[in-house]
Amino acid sequence: MTIPPPSDPAAVAVELEKLRGTMAAGFATVNGSLALVAQRTDQTDRILTDHEQRLDALERARWPLPSLAALVGVVSLALALWQLSQK
């Protein structure tokens, strides 16, 4: 397959300029998409950080529950024994 010689250098220049414009538009689209992906990644990172902080706060707030349950059990046992001793 042979490439025919260009018949008009101006036509080649025009086609190259069109190709350059098409490539520039394509790169602009890709750059816009990458910017959107980067923005969503930042948002996801912020949401994940927020969720981790909230989970840590819940874990810290949860620790006294078993101690409180044991304390309530001991107090109820003491009250039951006290009531039995009063009869």
Rank of each mutant, 00 (worst) to 15 (best):
L19V: 14
L19T: 14
G21P: 01
G21F: 06
T22D: 13
T22N: 15
M23S: 14
M23V: 15
A24V: 05
A24R: 09
A25L: 07
A25N: 08
G26L: 14
G26R: 15
F27Q: 15
A28Y: 06
A28V: 05
T29I: 11
V30A: 13
N31R: 15
S33G: 12
S33D: 10
L34M: 11
L34P: 07
A35S: 09
A35K: 09
L36W: 00
L36Q: 13
L36E: 13
V37E: 01
V37D: 01
A38P: 01
Q39H: 14
T41F: 00
T41Y: 00
T41D: 01
T44D: 03
T44F: 04
T44K: 09
D45W: 00
R46T: 13
R46W: 02
L48V: 15
T49C: 04
D50C: 06
D50T: 15
H51F: 02
E52G: 05
E52S: 10
Q53N: 11
Q53R: 08
L55E: 10
L55V: 11
L55F: 07
L55A: 10
A57Q: 07
L58H: 08
E59K: 10
E59D: 11
R62A: 14
R62T: 08
W63H: 12
W63S: 15
L65R: 10
L65Q: 12
S67Q: 06
S67H: 03
S67L: 08
S67R: 02
S67K: 01
A69T: 11
A69E: 05
A70V: 04
A70L: 06
L71I: 10
V72Y: 00
G73F: 01
G73V: 02
G73E: 06
S76W: 00
A80K: 03
A80I: 05
Q83I: 02
L84V: 10
L84Q: 14
Q86K: 12
Q86W: 01
